[in-house]
Design a protein around this nucleic acid. Sequence first.
DNA 1: CGCCAGGGCTAGC
DNA 2: GCTAGCCATGGC
Length: 287
Amino acid sequence: MKIRQSENSVIISGIKDFNPKHTFLCGQCFRWDEEADSSFTGVAFSKVVNISCKDDEVTIKNITLAEYESQWKHYLDLDTDYNYIKSTFSSDEHVKKAQDFGWGIKILNQEIFECLISFIISTQNAIPRIKKIVSKLSEMYGSKIEYLGKTFYAFPTLEQLQSVSVESLAPLKAGYRAQYIVDAVYKLSSGEVKLADISSMPYEAAKAQLMKIKGVGPKVADCVLLFSAGKKEAFPVDVWVKRTMQALYLGDGATQKQIEEFAANHFGTYAGVAQQYLFYYARENKL
DNA sequence: CGCCAGGGCTAGC
DNA sequence: GCTAGCCATGGC
């Protein structure tokens, strides 16, 4: 990989296995939108950024080289060898087919507070509506950012959500999830749950910590661990993955717990990456 | 009207 | 430990 700065952009060449469309539309994040030119604009680290890709060259607009090194390289998981990860699934025909379809997916390392609240909102919900609610929450409580004449909002910090109540969240129309957001803010503010420790904790202990928050069960916890804490062994089982795993491997009766155990044994250390290929393939093809 | 969406909580075994 | 019924909201 070669990295250079050009005005307010960072350009990385020699990148293999990165496809912005598959990465940003595969369901792991809710704040990236595709532009007319097929680039993606999103907000993270309190900045509006535009990412485009041509052949093996990725352009990230509106960041400095220092910000790339300290934040975006890790955010985009560019320091991980996906060829090696894929090689660990090479004996599995189903994953092979799904990864050929969703090639270039990177498992993002998102900001954990945003990821937690977003996936609390995601429960029993549809992706377009999750995006709407997360966007509205940012507009109501997050900091305003101007970029190229347009207004964006950063995802609110814990401090900015300090005053939320079920009543104040009513405009979100998040339904029964509003009380879970309030509980998360309360437990994080009191220190009962500490997000700063999650990524350095062992998988099981980290999962138990997150599940102390109301509205965070095994699936939401796994999403947070996989998409913002670098736990690639996490294997979130939602309705799509459950159907897929039942159809391909385990049969109709398989429970969530059985699927999680099978995934850990069958896919191993990088089960979460296989999960994302399978989820994206199933959802895009309406299986 | 129905069913479904990146599930989780609670009550009752 | 497990399952059944319930939960807001909106799209189809």
